[in-house]
Design a protein around this nucleic acid. Structure first.
Lengths: 105, 105
DNA sequence: TCCTTATATTAGAATTATCGAACATTCTAA
DNA sequence: TTAGAATGTTCGATAATTCTAATATAAGGA
């Protein structure tokens, strides 16, 4: 596979992580699976909107669903996702300490 | 600082990485600084467009410029950025091997 | 100063992402 | 099989991103 395509796919993963709600979901799934209802109750988000975000993350292979009766439980597909997020979080915190201007937008 | 704000800043960093050209630039800077001209010549990109991407990355604290005469040399601000990118790349490759559908868009 | 090279900025069009609202689906229990 | 709870999908408005083209700025040399 060409490098260009790899960069595209890589960018696609980053794009999936580039949303505060989705990052919060990932953080919530850090220690194991949670049902949609559990996630909704832990966040300030509508069920429909969460479902949209979960769809995006599912399609990109970030999370994996498991249906159990009426509930659907989601988990992270790969523990390295948390590692990557934590690394970026470290970069962020180090920059904040260094006074780098990082305001969103 | 509130978690919500942290997630916003974190998303902002991911957003900055969520572009194939910018990822390619980061990869090019992996082993040390390069001038804008060097980067342009190593990629398929216009100078103006590269300058725009460098501006974004500069503002988000991903890269740091150093002017030397008429040239501006850019370097990564933090080696953890490469580590995070490499981790995500690993996740991507493992997913590809597992046959996960990751097509962009 | 004037010219040239290197880099940055702006404007505008096209594409893409986000969210609320409304609606659809799936499953279980009664 | 109908009701209700849990989850998913579609649509449309708004906002953000990306690129090209044109222009601007900065630095050095003749």
């Amino acid at each position: 596979m060409a490098d260009r395509q790899l960069y595209e796919l890589h960018a696609s993963i980053c794009q999936t992580l580039a949303n505060p709600k989705r990052l919060e979901v990932i953080d919530l799934l850090r220690d194991g699976e949670k049902s949609v209802t559990e996630i909704v109750e832990a966040m300030e988000i509508s069920q429909a909107n969460l479902s949209q975000h979960l769809t995006v993350m599912r399609q990109k292979g970030i999370v994996v669903p498991r249906r159990e009766g009426v509930n659907v439980y989601y988990r992270l597909s790969n523990p390295k996702i948390i590692k990557a997020c934590d690394l970026m979080r470290q970069v962020l915190l180090e920059h904040l300490q260094a006074g780098v201007e990082l305001a969103r937008g």
